[in-house]
């Protein structure tokens, strides 16, 4: 977890054993294990999408197959343009999940950095950051995202920016409170007494100790972002058609809800399953990383 420069060579062995300890506790939770397996299977299938069902199938229109129900040839059926839903779900997963993961990472990095600075330096710096954040948060997420997407246009990068802006605030508050708490710890005091500067204290004493909470929060956020992203697509603010994307598929399926529910079912199931699996993993990690539950 904590990369230390100049650590003795033996340290990596111990770190591994700590990771093993966490894994041992993680395994105890059946739900978390199930979530992990589910996610790995989904990721594997999505990663191999090109071999299973070429991208061409996901965008090729075939009006003869319009709204075709699931069959052997099209196991998930076809949508209103006669495109293969299975291929669209697979390739849509790539877009949806990669945006979700990237937005999680960028919002985590950006938010954590701001939170760490606010918490560690306190006083004026803290006031400026936190008051700006208050103003920022007083605008509803969705409204803000809409503004960004409408102003900049809907594409992968802008969507990433919009999602980052919607989610970084959580991390600012989370990391700030962690840092405030950890800065009070005696080992931080001791490190200062040893002559360590701010950078060293943040990098080697505060961040590694806040890591557990941040990791857990991050996994939980992935699922939130997957859902939020679908909401955006559903509102027509996500990836532009015809690119396959889960939220977009839901929106297109809406008109055929009564006659062809399979249009809705498969992308919805993909969203629910991925969000659930990440959530289960997050729950398990929270327990596994909590030293008080060590047994």
């Amino acid at each position: 977890m904590a990369e230390q420069s100049g650590g003795p060579a033996g340290a990596s062995f111990k770190r591994q054993s700590q990771a093993r300890e966490i894994w041992r506790r993680f395994k105890k939770s059946k739900g978390a294990l199930f979530g992990l397996v589910l996610l790995i299977v989904m990721l594997a299938v999505i990663a191999c999408a090109d071999f299973i069902a070429p991208y061409r199938l996901a965008t090729k229109q075939n009006l003869a197959k319009k709204l075709a129900p699931p069959s052997i040839e099209h196991i998930f059926g076809c949508d209103s343009y006669g495109r293969d839903i299975f291929a669209r779900v697979l390739h849509g997963g790539r877009t949806s999940l990669s945006i979700a993961v990237m937005a999680t990472i960028t919002s985590c990095l950006f938010g954590s950095l701001l939170g760490a600075v606010a918490g560690y330096f306190g006083k004026k710096v803290d006031s400026v950051i936190m008051r700006s954040l208050d103003i920022f948060m007083s605008v509803p997420d969705l409204l803000f995202t809409m503004a960004v997407v409408v102003a900049l246009g809907a594409n992968f990068i802008n969507l990433l920016i919009a999602l980052t802006l919607a989610y970084f605030t959580n991390y600012v508050r989370l990391v700030r409170s962690q840092v405030l708490n950890l800065s009070e710890q005696e080992y931080v005091e001791a490190a200062k007494a040893g002559g360590a500067g701010s950078v060293r204290i943040i990098a080697s004493h505060i961040i590694p100790n806040a890591m557990g909470v941040i990791i857990v929060n991050t996994t939980l956020n992935v699922s939130k972002i997957i859902l939020y992203e679908s909401t955006l697509s559903f509102l027509g603010l996500g990836m532009p058609p015809p690119a396959p994307e889960w939220g977009l598929m839901l929106m297109e399926a809406r008109a055929f809800l009564r006659t062809s529910p399979h249009l809705l079912f498969f992308p919805a199931a993909a969203i629910v399953l991925s969000a659930c699996s990440v959530n289960l993993i997050g729950d398990g990690l929270r327990d596994a990383l909590d030293p008080h539950l060590k047994s």
Binding site: G7, P8, S204, H205, P208, N209
Partner: peptide, 9 residues
């Protein structure tokens, strides 16, 4: 002592 750092470090 920092709980997530080896004593050597």
């Amino acid at each position: 002592l920092n709980p997530v750092m080896t004593v050597g470090d």
